[in-house]
Simulated scan of single mutants.
Amino acid sequence: MKLYPNERTLLLIDGASFHASARSLGFDVDYRRLLDLFRSKVQLLRAHYYTAIPEDPEYFAMRPLVDWLDYNGYSVITKPMKEFTDASGRKKFKANMDVELAVDAMRMANQLDHMIIFSGDGDLRSLVAALQELGKRVTVVSTLETDPPMISDELRRQADHFIDLADLENEINRTYADALAKPACNKRDSAATRDLAKIDENEN
């Protein structure tokens, strides 16, 4: 990773995209280890986590995870999922957080040297280009180790640097020992995983 200790850095995590990448690689993210990793390598000003929240209480299982992040060093940005019915009558959910992520990135650009975006969404290429025009360095975190890759080629080429999530697995994964030591957290994350999976499936 091309990280420098004196760089004022912001993490921008698209929750659904980040989850989908980790799930495709077959591991669960330990968000405490993720935060500690970047705090040890850069001057981390903030870490933003973006996710949609279901309005229906039946699908509200990820609230404990969102609350945990909010109390443990992350700024959590949420909005309600939009529910709709497709042409075949199936219920689907829409929960794109690109606009919120882009607005925050541009609003905070003057305070930062480096932005690290955890997403593979090609729609963010224009945001990366705009930040670069302001003299900011932009790193994108996603993965090429899946078939198909979880990152768009346009976004990867636009970014100053690309970090493959597979290369971070040993540093940020939830280990078997962690799962035994934290059964409540594991139960919480499993429920949240189901909710995030609903978003992933309907966004693709």
Rank of each mutant, 00 (worst) to 15 (best):
Y59F: 15
A61G: 14
R90S: 11
G73D: 04
D113Y: 08
F18H: 02
V66F: 04
E55F: 09
D121W: 00
D189Y: 11
L165M: 15
F118D: 04
R33T: 03
A181G: 11
R194A: 13
L44N: 00
A102E: 07
D30R: 05
K82L: 12
M81V: 09
S17E: 07
S24W: 00
M115Q: 13
D98H: 07
E154N: 04
V29Y: 03
R46A: 12
V128A: 07
I163E: 03
V140R: 03
L25D: 01
A192H: 10
E83A: 10
D123E: 11
V140N: 02
L124P: 01
D189C: 09
L45I: 14
I172E: 02
K198I: 15
G15E: 04
G120P: 04
E58N: 14
N170H: 13
S88H: 12
Y50A: 12
F18M: 05
W68M: 02
D160G: 11
T143L: 06
L127K: 04
W68A: 06
P149T: 07
R156L: 04
K198W: 11
A22G: 09
A179G: 03
E169D: 10
L180F: 13
D178M: 03
G120V: 06
R90I: 07
A105S: 14
F162Q: 01
G73P: 05
I163Q: 00
I116D: 00
L37E: 05
F93S: 04
A102V: 11
H114W: 00
L196T: 08
W68R: 05
M81C: 07
T51C: 13
L11Y: 08
V99I: 15
L12H: 06
A179M: 11
R174M: 13
Q158I: 06
W68T: 04
S88A: 13
A109Q: 06
R8E: 13
Y4P: 03
L134V: 01
L196M: 15
R157D: 03
F27Q: 06
R107E: 13
I77P: 05
F18C: 01
T78C: 01
A192S: 15
A159N: 02
K2L: 14
R90V: 10
L134T: 02
M108A: 12
L25T: 05
G73N: 07
R157T: 06
A109L: 05
S40F: 00
L127H: 07
D104T: 10
V103L: 11
A16R: 01
Q132V: 08
Y59P: 07
N173D: 13
S119K: 03
R156N: 00
L101M: 15
R107V: 10
D147T: 14
L3W: 04
N173I: 12
D70N: 15
M115T: 02
G73M: 05
P64M: 09
G26R: 10
N96G: 09
P80N: 08
A87T: 08
I151C: 00
A179K: 10
C185H: 13
S119I: 01
A102R: 06
P5F: 11
K2T: 13
